[in-house]
Amino acid sequence: MKLLQDRFGYPVAAITGPCTDNSAGVDNVEAATGCVALNARLESEALAAHLMKTLGLGAGVVS
């Protein structure tokens, strides 16, 4: 997160990957970063909903 934010100026919308594989990882990540940590395989609905909100895409939008 430090590299992404300090060097590239990107806010991180969410953290996923093996570091979020269980509650030990999720708790650690969220406590250390304050960033949303969701596992893409186990919590895909919640992660997608969070990102749709961040992107300004309403749930259920059909083009």
Binding site: M1, L4, Y10, P11, V12, A13, A14, I15, T16, G17, P18, C19, G25, N28, V29, A32, A40, L47, L51, T54, L55, G56
Partner: peptide, 10 residues
């Protein structure tokens, strides 16, 4: 609009 970081470890 959004960036997600995938990380192997903390």
């Amino acid at each position: 609009g959004a960036l997600v970081l995938a990380a192997s470890d903390p």
